[in-house]
Nucleic acid binder design. Structure first.
Lengths: 201, 201
DNA sequence: AAGAAAAATGAACATCGTTCGGAATTGGAG
DNA sequence: CTCCAATTCCGAACGATGTTCATTTTTCTT
């Protein structure tokens, strides 16, 4: 690799690291191009030689967050299976959201507008999380068709995410932080009990 | 009421109406102080004599959205009760989010930072929605203590919200819009089946 | 080693939310 | 009705933002 690409990669790395640190510290809404370039030790304009724009940089920082989150979730389910894995995933998700709140929040900022232009590697980072949920679901014997498994994974991930997001972002609608994990446990207990009861509607 | 307060109220009304229309049209992220004052037929600075800032105006527009949403939900549950009401609430919520997407999105923009300064009337607007969920839950005979009812209402509201939000904001994680309501039905079926099965853990 | 290509720089630009001093409008006293 | 103090309205101005661009500096090729 020539010195050209080396420096380019070093700059991108420095910017992503600086962005991740600043997002964790002050939140993505307060991340400014001037702050992040200053923290990375480059000029303001250099941001736009390394990334398309500030959102693109945030997207790359998010990819790093997604990796951290996935590793957390994998660790949480290393010694469990089936329903226990589902519970462990939900708890680990809530803990990550609480402990790395600003980084986690940045994962869900993108509006519908330019949804088609979201890169595939970013979508894949999210799908990796869904795969973990689907894996746990697959270990629970259900009378549902296997095709529905991915859809269930999306629903349960979104449901747990909703409870966590409401608790952390809109406490006057969601649960107080102190009871969040207990309420997630209760929700999952009810879901799993419902899953095991065949032919409901 | 003197002419002073009359004009003041008329200005506030015009600004809220203009803000609601603009949010519905372009989304709260693209709402600018210049656009909304121009649409309301007043000067740029007048916004700050009628409201504390742009966020305060959005908050008042949100209050109007909350009223519309609550009326929709009430209509949806007028002829139902218990589990059927829960299902009707969730469907009506999803429909509202889809049809009035930008207005609905604006309801959940506020970050944690200055959460204490959110006015009570705004919190009450959200609580009115929770009350509808709790009312439907109360009609289902459960073996849970009554104290847990409000907590369950928060969980189920947040869970359905999460599924809807993922579908509309992050389709690569949530459900495609075409199957959203069917998946919400499936989620609620599972939840209700789990609720009716006593002593699960 | 020198010229060509690329990248880094930071001043400049457009746009944003918000402020502020002067102009217009309102309410009450004579 | 008239006038003046008080209030409200106005839009130019301010500071901060994301992004661009001409210039300088660095890197690659021959």
């Amino acid at each position: 690799m020539g010195r050209r690409e080396e420096k380019r990669e070093a700059l991108r790395e420095a910017l992503i690291t600086a962005a991740t640190g600043l997002i964790e510290a002050v939140g993505h809404a307060h991340l400014t191009a001037r702050d992040v370039t200053s923290a990375a030790g480059c000029a303001l304009g250099s941001l736009y030689t390394a990334f398309a724009d500030l959102d693109d940089l945030i997207l790359h920082a998010n990819a790093r967050t997604l990796t951290m989150l996935r590793e957390d979730l994998e660790r949480a389910t290393a010694a469990t299976e089936g329903a226990a894995s589902l519970r462990a995933l939900a708890r680990a998700y809530a803990r990550f959201a609480r402990q790395r709140n600003h980084l986690w929040s940045a994962l869900f900022i993108y509006a519908m507008e330019d949804l088609e232009r979201i890169p595939a590697w970013y979508v894949n980072g999210h799908h990796a999380l869904l795969t973990l949920v689907a894996g746990a679901l697959a270990e629970i014997p259900l009378d549902e068709p296997a095709e529905a498994l991915e859809a269930r994974a999306r629903s349960y991930f979104a449901a747990v995410h909703g409870v966590v997001a409401m608790s952390l972002h809109s406490p006057f609608v969601g649960h107080p932080e102190a009871v969040l994990e207990a309420e997630i446990d209760a929700l999952l207990d009810t879901l799993i009990a419902g899953l095991r009861q065949p032919g409901t509607v």
